[in-house]
Design a protein around this nucleic acid. Structure first.
Lengths: 235, 235
DNA sequence: ATGCTTTGTTACAAATCAGAAACAAAGTTT
DNA sequence: AAACTTTGTTTCTGATTTGTAACAAAGCAT
């Protein structure tokens, strides 16, 4: 079985080995590149289905490689980065990356993401049905607001931006993705940031308060005492 | 808070001690096993949420234990190994391990991985005590009421919330999950809170009384004299 | 019945929880 | 470096939740 061709561009040979072996047993053909120059060559030669791009490359910034790659091929690109920095993530996604994964990651997660990217990139090109269809909702409307995932923004229906910070955005997104379900602070913490949650941490509470304020103190986010918070679709 | 039950299978008693103490202060219940035989017994008896499996065990290879464990339970398994060998790691993951950690490791890392595994395994099987019923038993109807686990609420059939506190909710949930079975106060205490139950503690009684009141003094919760309480499905 | 034990009820006190505000720390931009 | 943004900490406060104590009621045995 060949599920697809993957080009892994990474300076870190150990990681390369692990990733390659795993993905091969998982049914993919895997090719390796260790620097930008050979990567570009490989890409135009073989047109892989998915490209794994580590941002730390020997011959310069991997970030500059991203647009070059997108120029030569329509492959899906998953950026691999050591930083779990959200702004970098956004930059990458804006530059055309299809997904973003931070080290250290688990092979299964990588595999799942590859599968997802493959599905998305292949959905766009099978015949000409309707190219307007998006696999995942980029925009979620709720009440008088709109959550725009493409731009990481929350807007009111007039199109006015509500100046959500990234942290606030992610938290709201996490809540909205599980409507009518009470999520613990611990869980919300997990979903929106790295690190460990300890029970005296009130930061989620604060952020909820800030979100509520920006949403005009509407009660879309209910507090579930002793548990956490819950989003309830308005109207 | 009880975040979950962990079974640590390890020959190395010193490591066991350190790990156990740390995880307990971290909010988990931790059980120990020192060889394959007792491990299997323990697993089928208690169905832990996560299993820590050290590959070096006295009575043979721990690796052969892995599939046996997966056969008896759906617990997440984290393999602990002295070798940082990648192929071994892959083998473990292919055999069904959910994660892999190499010695020496930091407690915080272990904790983070446990949390991640818990999250994943619980996403797959959300509270599946009865595996024969619907996979998502988020809502349990009983008599004229509904127990909604997603929202941590008890409602009447009209959809009106009965304002259960989280403590009351958990207690009712514990009872309902074991219908027609008398549960001791001790057990109920264990199921719903942390700390030690002492025999003069009447708090369970009080909470039962409050639940009954909110359920309109119906007799869904029967008292079993000298033992504790029992939920009997109405109608 | 008569004690004795167990459970239910009530009132009250203690503990816990979440919101708000003010402030501090960290990260960005200029 | 200075100004600004974003995020987290601390403290205070009111409200809810929970536990304790005392007593009443019910169950059980003789």
């Amino acid at each position: 079985m060949n599920k697809g061709v993957i080009l892994s561009i990474d300076d870190d040979h150990d990681l390369q080995t692990v990733v390659t072996e795993y993905l091969q047993t998982d049914g993919y053909k895997v090719l390796n590149a260790y620097d930008a120059e050979s990567a570009i060559k490989d890409v135009s030669a073989i047109k892989p289905d998915v490209i794994l791009l580590d941002l730390v490359l020997p011959d310069g910034e991997g970030l500059t490689l991203l647009p070059q790659l997108k120029a030569v091929t329509s492959s899906g690109v998953i950026v691999v980065s050591g930083k779990s920095d959200t702004t970098e993530k956004i930059i990458c996604l804006e530059m055309g990356a299809d997904d973003y994964i931070t080290k250290p990651f688990e092979m299964r997660e990588l595999s799942a993401r590859i599968k997802a990217v493959l599905r998305r990139t292949h959905e766009q090109t099978p015949q000409n049905t309707k190219s307007t269809e998006t696999p995942k909702d980029e925009i979620i409307e709720f009440g008088e607001w709109v959550l725009d995932r493409a731009q990481y923004q929350v807007l009111d229906k007039g199109g006015q931006s509500l100046n959500f910070t990234t942290g606030e955005f992610k938290l709201l997104e996490a809540l909205i993705e599980a409507p009518n379900r009470a999520l613990t602070r611990d869980h919300l913490f997990d979903l929106t940031r790295d690190g460990n949650f300890d029970s005296y941490d009130r930061s989620i509470d604060i952020q909820i308060a800030r979100i509520r304020k920006k949403l005009d103190n509407n009660d879309v986010i209910k507090t579930v005492r002793g548990v956490g918070y819950m989003y309830t679709p308005p109207k």
